[in-house]
C-alpha cells in the first residue's frame, strides 16, 4: 500500500506532464503542511504564523542563489538551518502562554518578518519579489529545465526524505511523548516529563522542515515574493491539515493534493470565489468531519473490519 503510494509520482509524471508545476507545488505544500502537523497535530501547539519559517527558508535559499551560490542541496540545507535556528529562538516566546497567546505570538512573529522583508527591499526585492534566482544543476548533473521535470523530481524526493524523517520522529518515544503533552500536560508533568523541552524541540524541528519547504519553493520556481510570509500561507497549511487530517502523517499529503486540485478546479469555474467555497468547506469540515480525509478513511476501514468480523461469525 505505502509503496504503491510512493510510486504514484511516476505515473503522475507521465499522465500530467503539462501540469508538473502544479504537482511540484502540491509536493511543497505537502511538506509545509507536514512540518506544521508535527507542531500542531502531534505537539498540540497552535500556530497562525508558520509561514514565518517557510518564508525564512525561501529567502535564505533564494538569496544564496542570487548572490552566487546556486548549489541546490546545500542551499536547501541552509534554508532548513536558518529556519531551525529561528524556530528555536522564537519557541521560547511562543511556548510561554496559553493557546490564545500562542496564536497571537506566532501571528505577530510572521507579521514582523513580513514587514521586515517588505522594508528591506534592497535585500529582498520588497514587493517586487526577488528575481535572479539561478540554480546550478543538482549534483552538477540535473539542470533545472523549462518544463519543470527536474524541479518535480527534486521536490518529490525531498518530500519523501522529509516524510520518512518526520514519520520516524512521530513513531519514536519522542513522538509518544509529544502525544502525551498534547493529550494531558498535567499528567506529563506528574510523570516527570520535561514538557517544555519536548515542545521546544518539536517547534524547532517543525520550523526547520518548514524552512526546507520554503527553500524548495524558491529553488523550484526560481523566485521569491513577499507572499511566502503572508498570513494566508499560514492559513493554507492549517486548511490542508483540516482537509487531510492532522496528527496523521499522510494527512498533510492527501490534504495538499485535495486542496490544490480543488483550488484549480473551483477557481477555474469562478475565478475569484474559490475563497468563498474554501471558507464554506472549512466550516463544514470543522463542524462535521473533524478527522479530515484521513479520519474518513479510518472510519471506512473500521467499518470494513467490523462487517468482516460479523461475516466471520
Amino acid at each position: 500500500m505505502e509503496i504503491l503510494f510512493w510510486l504514484l509520482p511516476i505515473p503522475l509524471f507521465f499522465l500530467f506532464g503539462l501540469r508538473l508545476p502544479l504537482l511540484t507545488e502540491i509536493a511543497i505544500l505537502a511538506l509545509f503542511a507536514l512540518s506544521l502537523d508535527l507542531i500542531l497535530g502531534y505537539a498540540g501547539i497552535v500556530s497562525l504564523g508558520h509561514a514565518a519559517f517557510f518564508g525564512l527558508g525561501a529567502y535564505t535559499a533564494g538569496l544564496l542563489a542570487v548572490h552566487g551560490w546556486g548549489e541546490p542541496i546545500t542551499g536547501l540545507l541552509a534554508a532548513g538551518a536558518v529556519a531551525t535556528a529561528a524556530g528555536f529562538v522564537s519557541s521560547f516566546l511562543v511556548l510561554r502562554g496559553s493557546d490564545l497567546t500562542r496564536l497571537m505570538v506566532t501571528l505577530a512573529i510572521s507579521m514582523m518578518l513580513l514587514e521586515a522583508a517588505n522594508r528591506l527591499a534592497w535585500l529582498t526585492g520588497g514587493a517586487d519579489g526577488l528575481y535572479g534566482v539561478t540554480m546550478w544543476p543538482i549534483f552538477g548533473i540535473f539542470e533545472f529545465d523549462l518544463y519543470g521535470h527536474t524541479a518535480y523530481w527534486y521536490s518529490v524526493i525531498v518530500l519523501f526524505i522529509s516524510f520518512v524523517a518526520l514519520r520516524a520522529i512521530v513513531n519514536s518515544p519522542f513522538g509518544l511523548a509529544l502525544r502525551g503533552v498534547k493529550g494531558n500536560p498535567l499528567r506529563m508533568r506528574a510523570i516527570g516529563a520535561p514538557v517544555n523541552r519536548h515542545l521546544v524541540k518539536a517547534f524547532t524541528i517543525g520550523a526547520g522542515f518548514a524552512g526546507i519547504a520554503g527553500g524548495l519553493l524558491a529553488q523550484a520556481t526560481q523566485f521569491v515574493s513577499l507572499d511566502v510570509l503572508a498570513f494566508h500561507r499560514s492559513a493554507e497549511a492549517l486548511l490542508v491539515l483540516v482537509i487531510g487530517g492532522s496528527g496523521a502523517v499522510y494527512g498533510g499529503i492527501l490534504g495538499a493534493a485535495a486542496f490544490r486540485v480543488l483550488q484549480e478546479w473551483l477557481s477555474g469555474i469562478t475565478p475569484q470565489y474559490w475563497q468563498f467555497w474554501l471558507g464554506a468547506g472549512l466550516i463544514v469540515l470543522v463542524l462535521f468531519a473533524r478527522g479530515g480525509l484521513i479520519g474518513l478513511w479510518r472510519a471506512l476501514v473500521r467499518r470494513l473490519h467490523r462487517t468482516r468480523d460479523e461475516e466471520a461469525r
Partner: peptide
Amino acid sequence: HLDQVLFSIGLVFMAMAGVD
C-alpha cells in the same frame, strides 16, 4: 481553540469573498 480558529477563518473567507 483550534477548531474555533479554523471555523472563524472559514467565516472570514466567506465574508471576504461575498463582499468582493
